[in-house]
């Protein structure tokens, strides 16, 4: 009797969260997949089943491929760089350092700022002629550079902004993990004559693996999810040089109103993210030691 009641209670307690999850996550996800097999309804023409036509169109779409590779490049560069930078900064501010709290605050500040504000700050840095970078390089005798207007530089410039923002956020996780490593381990290693590098390689880094896994999954998600700075700084330009997958989905859905094609693009993004997350878990989980 009590068993049955507990079963009911369990479902009752779970139901609010389940309802929200289904209504706002699972149903939209499934309907997106469903929509990707239909044509976009326009005017008097209702949507009709088109099978894989949208996917065929996708494979032929040069803009899609450019945006796809942009996104991959963006992830491949920003994730390792921001994670490595976060680890370096965390090790630095974990040490004995005067004004340590100030440095920690300074590193964390970009995380607190909204990405829109960050993007605006960097717009000022990048502005050709009187932007901060050009003023400094001009003073040193270098020519002016249009960081956001040059198709070869725009994506790189965007990457720098997101690394700047993300590294401070990840640093906090690394710092917390570093501070949970008992100092006595360092002393035990010192007695054995382990150098700082050996200690880092054999003890600190392995003990940080759970944090590295967590941070890198977050970094992957963020690298595909955050496009605010693209909106503010380049709008994907010039000539789609700095457009990312999510930004392209937004453009397709809400500028060109091609909702079926946008659904198709979304499915691609979902598959991409799932594959990467799964790969990370399978690859890293074996090497992660949880305490």
């Amino acid at each position: 009797m009590t068993h049955r009641r507990e079963w009911i209670y369990a479902w009752l307690l779970l139901s609010p969260a389940l309802v929200l999850l289904f209504a706002f996550t699972h149903i939209p996800a499934i309907s997106t997949i469903w929509d990707s097999f239909f044509s976009t309804p326009r005017g008097i023409r209702p949507s009709k089943f088109v099978g894989l036509e949208n996917y065929e169109k996708l494979l032929m779409d040069d803009t899609f491929w450019q945006v796809f590779w942009n996104s991959i490049w963006y992830a491949v560069v920003t994730i390792p760089v921001s994670v490595a930078l976060a680890l370096l900064m965390a090790i630095w501010v974990d040490g004995k350092l005067s004004g340590r709290s100030f440095v920690r605050l300074a590193y964390f500040a970009p995380t607190v700022l909204p990405l829109i504000a960050v993007a605006n700050i960097w717009m000022f840095f990048y502005t050709p002629g009187f932007g901060l970078i050009d003023q400094i390089s001009g003073a040193l005798g270098y020519p002016s550079v249009n960081w956001l207007g040059n198709p070869e530089l725009a994506l790189g410039s965007i990457m720098v902004v997101s690394i700047w923002k993300e590294a401070g956020f990840f640093m906090i996780f690394y710092l917390a993990a570093l501070q949970s490593i008992p100092p006595v381990l360092r002393e035990a290693a010192a007695i054995e004559g382990a150098s700082r590098w050996t200690f880092f390689r054999r003890v600190t880094f392995p003990l940080l693996m759970p944090t590295t896994l967590f941070v890198s999954i977050n970094a992957v998600i963020n690298s595909f999810r955050m496009v605010d700075h693209v909106f503010v700084m380049t709008e994907g330009g010039p000539n789609n040089a700095s457009s990312l997958l999510l930004f392209y989905i937004y453009e397709t859905a809400f500028k060109f109103w091609d909702t079926a094609y946008a659904s198709t693009l979304t499915v691609v993004l979902l598959v991409l993210l799932s594959v990467i997350a799964l790969g990370q878990f399978l690859l890293l989980d074996k090497r992660v030691h949880y305490r």
Binding site: A188, A190, R291
Partner: peptide
Amino acid sequence: PNERQIAMVFQSYALFPH
């Protein structure tokens, strides 16, 4: 410490958990 010909056992043992 490693130039002093000593070994040490700590109260918390200081074993490397991984």
